[in-house]
Amino acid sequence: MWPWEHAIMGYVAYSLFCHAYYRDSPGGLEAFAVVFASVLPDLIDKPLAWEFGVFEVGYAIGHSIFFAVPLSIAVGALARTYGRPRAGLAFAVGYLLHLPADIVDGYVRDDHLSFWIVLWPFRQDEVHLHAHEHTGFADQFFVLLGTYHQELFSDDPSTYALVMLGATGFAALLWLYDGAPVLRESVLAVKRGLERSVELVTDSRSR
């Protein structure tokens, strides 16, 4: 699954959970945490595989359930310590949804369930079938981006591409309904900063 698709799925899942359980929209920190965590496995494994050749494929420690679960628990505990338990939960939702999403995506695209991608360092017998040349992270990313562009804007896009396009539109509308978290907090922070600057200038002139 593409990184932006993970981000979309993570945000939608957490936002719907917030509305169902908390009767509230995600805050800016939570929205950032779920989106960041939803792409973090790829940010860990893809550069290590494609750029540095540490792993043969982009499914290794970052995608491993043996790493993901302890990391999510640790981040959750840390967030609770700082009085931000919902941010910790958002991180766990984003990160842990990434793993089964890649398995399902492989089945939809290739009609093959590859559970090995979440079992590093075990079950690496299929690694060689999915190996990429170590051509550099940026180069490999843009190659895959071109493939995605061709698939999405072809004369006969796949059902999967159309579904994800619809999911993107739904996520955008949901984000706006939630009050555009992250953007909202950023705008408010800039506004407060400007107001503070005006106050300081006014005070300095009045002295």
Rank of each mutant, 00 (worst) to 15 (best):
Y107W: 08
V163Y: 02
G53F: 01
L40P: 01
V93N: 07
P100D: 03
E151D: 14
A167H: 04
G169R: 09
G27H: 04
S72H: 05
A68G: 00
A31E: 10
A180G: 14
L29A: 14
M9S: 08
G136D: 00
A68Y: 15
M9N: 11
L71C: 09
R192N: 08
G166H: 01
D155T: 03
S25T: 10
F91T: 08
D45K: 13
H98G: 15
D178P: 06
V190F: 13
S38D: 08
S64E: 02
A37K: 04
A60W: 12
G169K: 06
D111C: 01
L29M: 10
A92R: 12
E195M: 05
L176R: 12
L152H: 14
L152Y: 15
A161I: 02
G106I: 00
F55Y: 11
F67D: 05
H112T: 08
R205Q: 07
A90T: 06
G169S: 07
P181N: 13
I44F: 12
F153M: 09
A20F: 06
F66Y: 15
I44K: 09
Y107H: 05
S204W: 01
A87L: 02
A92Q: 05
H19S: 02
V182K: 03
R80N: 14
S64W: 15
G193C: 06
R109T: 07
L145S: 15
G53T: 03
R109E: 01
L29V: 13
A87F: 00
L162G: 06
M1F: 14
L16S: 02
R196T: 14
H63R: 01
D42T: 07
L71A: 09
L200H: 12
Q124F: 05
V163H: 08
F153H: 09
L144M: 11
R84Q: 06
S197Q: 03
L16R: 13
G28M: 05
P26D: 00
Y107N: 02
V190S: 09
T159S: 02
R205P: 11
G146H: 05
D102G: 05
Q140A: 05
D155K: 04
R184V: 08
L119P: 14
A49T: 03
L40V: 05
S72N: 05
I117T: 14
V163A: 08
L43S: 01
S72I: 09
A79F: 06
Q124P: 12
A171H: 04
A171F: 10
P70C: 00
W50L: 07
V12R: 02
D178I: 12
L78R: 11
Y22E: 01
E56Q: 14
P121W: 02
V201A: 02
E126W: 12
L129Y: 11
A92F: 06
H63N: 12
T168N: 12
V187L: 07
R109M: 10
V182W: 11
F153R: 09
A31I: 06
W175H: 15
Y14N: 02
F170R: 00
A20R: 05
S158Q: 10
V127M: 04
V54N: 09
L40Y: 07
D156K: 09
Y14D: 08
L176V: 08
F55D: 01
H63Y: 10
R84G: 01
L16D: 04
Y177E: 01
